[in-house]
Design a protein around this nucleic acid. Structure first.
Lengths: 337, 337
DNA sequence: AAATTTTGCGCAACCGTTTGCCCAGTCATT
DNA sequence: AATGACTGGGCAAACGGTTGCGCAAAATTT
């Protein structure tokens, strides 16, 4: 009862060496069948369980993956983490969690702690204002592999999984164009974000496919806050051309924009229509859900990123074989529309 | 560059014993000022960092808390985990995550793995169909303290933090009564859930405070699925007395119920009104948000539960001083109503 | 029957840190 | 000058498991 049984304990009782017991438990071929069975039986009887901390220490490996992401309360991330967890668990890895709450400083601290905790590898989605990547460079020295997902840094020589917003954006804008919209506003995210740039590119391509002219003043960068969105809407609604449709950065932004439009007396889906990028599984309950939404496959992203990390850890992949996986986003038409 | 510096390394370079270095780094008073400074300087220079896995092993402590909960995609839990994480981090603990996805079997597996990973303690919110608690009893043998939160087992001698749904329910029903409603339906959760029972009690008390009679047929148990909710609504709407208000188990249920009512041609907030229990921070975007919602303070619950666990771990609290904290829920009127 | 290989197991070091105990030198007390 | 009390530091064990190497006995080959 007091102390959990150890290998030494088993060895003593059976008059064997600890090494023999260890090997027997691992079905080492050099151990005779009889002793092997004896050992395994006693181990079962004593309910022996290896002390993982000892193994971690000895093997210099913790079977732990660190996850650093901005906010679990964002549906995208809580879906992604399920993909991560499921994949990690299949390979007997556990998941250490850290939320940056979109604060770079906190992100750095978490990284520091995780490094000290000796996680085997890291899965990271950046805080939205992280522009300095020194804390990630630092990890290279410690040989801790990092795979980024979704919010990836603008940095060479990294592993990442991200969705390409371009394809989904093309589809979204094309849909609006097919529906006859000609003046389409875009509430985009922070300019430096890759995801914002991809949205811009997609928007341009879709417009130009129809031999229309791209009007940069219809593409407004906002900061994803409610206030920012409202300002962007104000700007778009006062555009000299009449905006009849909006592509919003994500569902949260979309809903804030809808709210503003309603306040301005506009009738949704008549005066103005919305498409968005899927963050919310519950948008069917919304007063005015977007016409369509670009799916970003969060679970899949988490899964792929974890798979890469695991391959890096198992040596199947060399650290400098940089994996850069892009998952095409895809437009999903809201049911019943 | 090859191996990270160790205490032994420092000791060798300074011609000291490892023990002296260790003590010097910990500002042990028995070490002279001069050597202490010398050691600390070299440590800084070499960028020495203690090998946590070695410390974990030696101290039989991992500074890791295991979190087991049903679903991070439920807003309640993603808020709770922030409370947990923040509190844990303050005391230099990290958080190991495991989602049961409301599957008892998976819950057991996670517990097993976490035990093997030697987490110092556990914070658990039960899968909704967990009725057998053997896997938790097992943890006692390993001296791993567990604090339950929100979804707590019906079991004596445990630590827990949970919100008491009764107070909020009384307030919710009272509000409806004040507004003139006399026939109030309740879509409750699974009968065996403590949270369901508390809702029932609260409902009864509020009714009886007004010298009205409790009608059990107005209190319907459902399984929280969309179908279950629709069945419950059907039952309530066909009640011989005309139901003019509904208390829904949570916001998800509420929205499903609203949807059903709308389909039946009822006008929300006129023919029928809804109050609910807060799960969704975004209900302001809903087509028909509940009139009011019972707040359950997820962040606070996570925080309190973690505080208790930390006190248990630090020995401030004995394992058998069972902490059972109940946080009163409180009705929050939706803004602008 | 001798030489060789195989089989089965033990010895001991090692991973990095902490900590109880011991010891030598220094200083202060009688 | 002898005794005692500090001061500053070292020795070695311990935490639990793994693994390279060595060695004897058994089995096989010649």
């Amino acid at each position: 009862m007091p102390n959990p049984p150890t290998i030494k304990e088993i060895a003593k009782r059976l008059n064997l060496a600890a090494s023999t017991v260890s090997r027997a438990l691992h079905d080492h071929p050099r151990i005779g069948l009889r002793t092997r069975l004896k050992v395994q039986e006693l181990a079962r009887e004593l309910q022996y369980e290896p002390n993982q901390t000892a193994i971690f220490f000895q093997q210099k490996k913790t079977f732990t993956l660190g996850i650093v992401l901005p906010e679990l309360s964002e549906a995208f991330f809580s879906a992604a983490i399920s993909g991560i967890e499921d994949t990690a668990n299949k390979s007997n890895y556990m998941v250490l969690l850290g939320q940056s709450h979109d604060d770079t400083e906190r992100e750095q601290k978490i990284l520091e702690i995780m490094k000290n905790h000796r996680v085997d590898g890291l899965l990271v989605s950046l805080a939205k204002n992280t522009v300095n990547y020194a804390h990630f460079e630092m990890l290279r020295k410690y040989n801790i592999p990092v795979v980024f997902f979704d919010r990836i840094p603008n940095m060479p020589d990294i592993h990442y999984v991200a969705s390409n917003m371009e394809s989904g954006t093309i589809q979204a804008v094309s849909l609006l164009l097919r529906q006859g919209h000609r003046v389409i506003g875009m509430i985009n995210g922070p300019e430096k974000l890759i995801a914002s740039q991809q949205r811009t590119t997609g928007y341009q391509k879709a417009i130009q496919q129809q031999r229309l002219k791209y009007d940069a003043s219809l593409n407004v960068n906002a900061d994803l806050t409610k206030e920012g969105t409202r300002n962007a809407m104000q700007q778009l609604l006062s555009h000299k051309r009449k905006v009849t449709a909006i592509v919003a950065f994500n569902d949260y932004v979309s809903q804030d924009a809808v709210q503003y439009a309603v306040e301005q007396g506009l009738e949704i889906n008549k005066d103005i229509s919305f498409v968005s990028y899927a963050n919310l599984p519950i948008s069917s309950y919304m007063a005015f859900p977007p016409l369509a939404s670009v799916e970003q496959y969060p679970y899949l992203q988490g899964q792929k990123a974890t798979e890469i990390l695991l391959e890096l850890l198992s040596g199947k992949l060399a650290a400098d074989q940089y994996q850069q996986i892009v998952i095409d986003s895809r437009l999903v038409i809201a049911p019943g529309r």
